[in-house]
Design a protein around this nucleic acid. Structure first.
Lengths: 225, 225
DNA sequence: GTCTTCGACGATCAGAATACGCATGGTGAC
DNA sequence: GTCACCATGCGTATTCTGATCGTCGAAGAC
């Protein structure tokens, strides 16, 4: 989740930034409307927090510019308590929400959650090793941008390995996590599925991501130089 | 456009009512939370304005009850300026916006416009995947402009899938959201309803929107190239 | 140190067994 | 009649088995 703050008062900006970063959002700050507008169209933010009282390009114009650029990111505007008119214009210009200064930081966080939840396509939680990417929410797997179709066992195995990439995973560990508890130890299904995965994921790459650790198990990682 | 006001102070209620009626909205007023909750689930409002400081059922509980009743209508809550905590809880409980008393009437109108626009026109409110459009406020579903009639179970399933389009939805997830809690796991109702939906939505299209994810569940999305 | 041998371990394949998803028809409630 | 739900049976993708083949590396010979 990446958030842009457009705010000229350094104190306020860093105050908000810290609060958001504590909630583990990625935060960018810029201090004027022109820069804000440009950043907003270059970077795909999840939320923009925009102070309407800015030097240079007035906030309301920056807001309109962003919306004119077809940026659909939710926008939360900050205004002075007294400027009712400004807020009204802001909402009509396409802001999704506003806060009046001064505000309680807790409130800002709540509004942030609300806006993000509303807009959520939830793309967080991507697993990535080298150019292999796995999206747990839609079970989509790609390598180098190329989609890879996996059966559900193959997928489960790969997800487990990606969540533990770098570690050596023994057969019992894999069995426990990917297969049932009453897993028959005297079978080679795991080897078979590793083989299936290699075919679908590492085939054609001279440096595969799935490595055999003889005598122990398997590991998924970037081949070290 | 029909709006419900839940407000116990007669003066405030009629003040808001008059302002909204001047903007030619249809306005209903009730004075307590229980009645408000019932009305909200009986009538298909476009917006609910809910005072959090009510006698009887506290406003926050009324709010939760309304959301629990699967009412998707945008809700604007009114709170006292000082009660930051209440506002935060309100937003987290599913309110879409709030105003602090006392407020300028002009501001209420602006927020009303913003919420209604959001609910009907663009980002939030209307659910859309490809040319399939679902309007939660009136349960209307169209594909390619063509109206589609759904039974209520079919509708509930589709709405859930559209709200989570792109994600893989497992049978337990679907059961929990669309069926009761005491759902019998050993039946194939879900499969059957998926089949019904496919017949009504994807029939005639060579690229359907409902996809089976073998071994996991189903997902609703645009077929990727 | 290097080469060869040998056994253990891992990879792979094809076919069998299984589980899964889907269509369809039927039942009961309203 | 309509709607929600259930049960059966079928075709097929997926999973698993078992056998064979390949490979790694330790140990001994030189």
């Amino acid at each position: 989740m990446r958030i842009l703050i457009v705010e000229d008062e350094p104190k306020v900006a860093s105050f908000i930034r810290r609060a958001l970063e504590e909630e583990s959002y990625a935060v960018d700050v810029c201090s004027d409307g022109i820069q804000g507008r440009d950043l907003a169209s270059e970077v795909d933010y999840d939320l923009i927090i925009l102070d309407l009282m800015l030097p240079g390009l007035p906030g309301i114009d920056a807001l309109k510019a962003i919306r004119d650029a077809k940026v659909a990111t939710p926008i939360l505007i900050l205004t002075a308590r007294s400027k009712v008119d400004q807020r009204v214009k802001g909402l009509d210009a396409g802001a999704d929400d506003y806060l009046t200064k001064p505000f309680a930081i807790e409130e800002l966080l709540a509004r942030t959650r609300a806006l993000l939840r509303r807009a959520s396509g939830d793309s967080t939680g991507l697993l990535q090793v080298d150019d292999l990417i796995l999206n747990p929410t839609n079970h989509e797997v790609t390598r180098g941008g190329q989609r890879i179709d996996l059966t559900s066992k193959e997928y489960a195995l790969l997800e487990y390995m990606m969540r533990n990439s770098g570690r050596v995973l023994t057969r019992p560990m894999i069995a426990e996590h990917v297969w049932d508890l009453d897993f028959d130890t005297f079978t080679n299904v795991i080897d078979v599925y590793i083989s299936y995965l290699r075919n679908k994921i590492d085939r054609g790459y001279d440096r595969g991501l799935i490595h055999t650790v003889r005598g122990s198990g398997y590991t998924l990682k970037l081949t070290d130089a």
